[in-house]
Design a binder for these strands. Structure first.
Lengths: 130, 130
DNA sequence: CCGGATCCTGGTCGATACTG
DNA sequence: CAGTATCGACCAGGATCCGG
């Protein structure tokens, strides 16, 4: 017997109740800078660094986008923000446990890319050859 | 001794040579519909279905976006497209091995969301309360 | 040093209408 | 049925300037 497809809303990704959350997460870390910030922070001593430091670590990012992306990550509990009342101002960001815990799952993708990306590139070349 | 940071280009995500590829992949599956299509196809018999079938499975998607997303996935070697010269036209799409192989790594994210998403939500509420 | 305020541009996506 | 064509809204993100 063929099982009838239950109506799944676009939020039910994977038929999973957290589908919407999954899509949100992918959208977030799929944006232009988030993943770079997370990785950059993860490589700093104590997974911690100040604004200008992160800025220098990530070539091409503008101050605006750095601020914005950090805010989003802070809002999501991935990083903390600590302001030191000095002159000149100093602000330090640090990866939270939550943020660090994302590095694990990410490794799955990294491995996949390592083993399969060449296939994707070949597929593209073949496809574009038309 | 403190190890001096090598200049890493924005393409060197994770200090990994495939960094650009990783970002590309995340951007692709982080877009609005790709992940839904992959999952939808993976649940069909033989990971295969026709255009209208997929369309009905994914509420809210427009014909335009369905076509576009399928094209992208086809170009990346994630799905195949087979046209049957009949009237009315029939076109079937099928997940490739490559496409299926992505489901594994994805599971890591799914699990992460399952165990950690509530933390994200709590962080957001706390943050927004200002 | 950090980051807010503005302005602007290109790209993504939805709506709609039309074809082989 | 399975698309293509066209238009327009919206928004991510870049450039730039200013301010505590």
């Amino acid at each position: 017997m063929t099982k009838k497809n239950k109506n799944l809303s676009p939020e039910d990704v994977c038929g999973h109740k957290d589908g919407a959350a999954i899509r949100e997460l992918l959208t977030r870390i799929g944006d232009k800078w988030s993943i770079l910030l997370i990785v950059a922070l993860s490589k700093m001593p104590k997974q911690r660094g100040r604004f200008s430091e992160i800025d220098r670590t990530i070539p091409g990012i503008t101050q605006r986008m750095l601020t914005l992306t950090l805010r989003n990550l802070e809002r999501d509990g991935m990083v903390t923000r600590e302001v030191f009342p000095e002159v000149p101002p100093r602000v330090e960001y640090q990866l939270t446990n939550l943020g660090q815990s994302l590095l694990g799952p990410m490794q799955g993708f990294v491995d996949w890319v390592g083993s399969r990306w060449s296939d994707v590139r070949k597929a593209r070349e073949k496809f574009d050859k038309r």
